[in-house]
């Protein structure tokens, strides 16, 4: 019975976080950043994304044209730096507005639910 609860909870939390993934990533790409440093930046801000999830996501966003990726070979090792495109910027702004509305609505719901 206990195990069951943990499993369901884990699944639901994962789903909840998955919805915020793209917004989290886009928010940190105003400056060119490479994958692993993005993992670290997000982690410093208590947003944990596994590298195995983030890397494929970056490629997908690049394919959709929301971010652009460029190889930087000057440093000690070649790294691919990603950064927000104009299209990505536009979508990011709209997602932010949507997010603010969501938080508002959820706050109201959860407050009224407590009583």
């Amino acid at each position: 019975m206990m195990d069951d609860t943990t499993e369901i909870l884990d699944n639901l939390m994962q789903e909840l976080r998955r919805g915020t993934l793209v917004l989290s990533v886009l928010s940190q790409l105003f400056r060119p950043t490479y994958g692993y440093s993005l993992v670290q930046t997000l982690e410093e801000k208590d947003v944990r994304i596994e590298a195995g999830t983030l890397y494929p996501l970056l490629r997908r966003l690049e394919k959709q044209g929301l971010i652009t990726g460029e190889w930087e070979v000057g440093g000690s090792k070649p790294r691919k730096y990603y950064h927000l495109s104009a299209k990505g910027r536009n979508i990011y702004d709209r997602l932010c507005a949507e997010w603010a509305g969501l938080v508002d609505g959820m706050d109201k719901l959860l407050e009224s639910g407590e009583k």
């Binding site: 490479y34 692993y36 670290q40 590298a51 890397y55 190889w71």
Partner: peptide, 15 residues
């Protein structure tokens, strides 16, 4: 993807 993963694994190791 090969290059990117190689870089990632190297970074994670160094960390």
């Amino acid at each position: 993807i090969r290059k990117e993963l190689a870089g990632l694994i190297e970074d994670m190791l160094a960390e």
